[in-house]
């Protein structure tokens, strides 16, 4: 037998850390370029917040892609719907939003976010059943159907709310910045970063510590084999799809607060950003999606500061560069 002796050390699982180092390296390299450390810190904090929001919106999409090979071009609709739903809660409780008390503010914010997630998730159920199930396994039709769904969703929002931009003021206690020496970091950005981190950790825990998560990861890699082991992956997929939609809704609320306005066209703008993140990260990889979101945000913020003209196409340049390096994204977890 050619077996190793029992005393031989276990081969260490190789961890692929190059992608993790990438944003860190990027951040360090820009310090001398930007010059002022306080500006750099502010920019970096802004990037983290933006990255976390994008991550929240993109996480569901990457899993849906990876798990079921479904191209959902309508994912942006869940973002916009989430944001609009939040305005429904904000408007009648404007006084509580204006109140200068964190707890009173949160008492509006939390239900608004939860309602948005519930509505987006429910919409996800409808979309999955009506638009995706009938064209399951056919990429071309998936793209066409979900693009059609995006148009319908956007137009319905316009019909219901009108074409104008709806203001969505930040609650009073989240305005302003934390001042540390000569560095100012907006409070809301800190909150957004914390929420994003919480979502990331929660997803990681589910994926790594539960049987459900194992099934999802296994399904991302090889759906057929999961079915051949006797698991009904369609149900699992529906759950993931709804969760992803709900997270997109949450991201929509957060983005609306960040921009302090709501408009149906936000879905178009964000769809491109999210696609770039999902591609960079590698289809189906949550870790890749997380790093990709941070990278996109860093490049946008640093780029916007250093070479404003270039910032317009920075996403594309980043995407091209990453794909030249790793053609299937940072982490290739699917077998496709």
């Amino acid at each position: 037998m050619t077996e190793l002796a029992a005393t031989d050390p276990l081969p260490k699982p190789k961890r692929d850390i190059a992608p993790i180092l990438l944003p860190i390296a990027l951040a360090l390299v820009t310090i001398p370029l930007i010059g002022s450390p306080s500006t750099w810190l502010t920019l970096t904090a802004a990037s983290l917040a933006m990255g976390m929001m994008i991550f929240i919106m993109a996480s569901g999409l990457t899993l849906v892609f990876g798990l079921m090979d479904v191209l959902n071009f309508g994912h942006g609709a869940f973002i916009a719907v989430g944001a609009y739903i939040a305005t429904l809660v904000f408007a009648p409780f404007a006084a509580s939003v204006q109140a200068d008390s964190l707890w009173v503010n949160l008492a509006v914010l939390a239900p608004a976010a939860l309602l948005s997630m519930a509505v987006s998730g429910a919409l996800g159920l409808v979309v999955e059943r009506v638009l995706i199930l009938p064209v399951y396994g056919q990429h071309l039709k998936q793209i066409l159907m979900t693009t059609g769904g995006l148009i319908v969703a956007e137009q319905t929002l316009y019909a219901l709310w009108g074409p104008q931009i709806i203001p969505m003021p930040l609650p009073t206690s989240l305005r302003g910045s934390f001042i540390l020496g000569d560095v100012a970091i907006a409070k809301y950005r800190v909150l957004a970063t914390l929420i994003g981190l919480a979502v990331f950790i929660a997803i990681q825990l589910v994926l790594n510590r539960t049987k459900l998560g194992l099934l999802i990861r296994a399904g991302v890699e090889n759906r057929e084999m999961v079915e051949a082991l006797g698991y009904r992956i369609r149900r699992l997929f529906l759950g993931v799809f709804m969760t992803g939609s709900a997270l997109a809704g949450l991201g929509g609320v957060m983005w609306a607060l960040y921009r302090e306005q709501v408009h149906a066209s936000m879905s178009d703008e964000l769809t491109v950003l999210i696609f770039v993140v999902v591609i960079i990260g590698g289809l189906g990889s949550i870790g890749g999606c997380f790093i990709g979101a941070i990278l996109v945000a860093l490049v946008a913020n640093y780029g916007g500061f250093l070479v404003p003209k270039l910032a317009l196409v920075s996403n594309i340049l980043l995407m091209v560069a990453i794909l030249m390096w790793r053609p299937r994204g940072l982490y290739a977890v699917t077998s496709r």
Partner: peptide, 22 residues
């Protein structure tokens, strides 16, 4: 050529939107 075929639609969308901004 270099990247996964499934990316094609998304890449064209991203490129087109960048071109539009440009």
């Amino acid at each position: 050529l270099r990247v996964a075929a499934i990316f094609f639609a998304m890449i064209t969308l991203a490129v087109a939107s960048a071109f539009q901004v440009l």
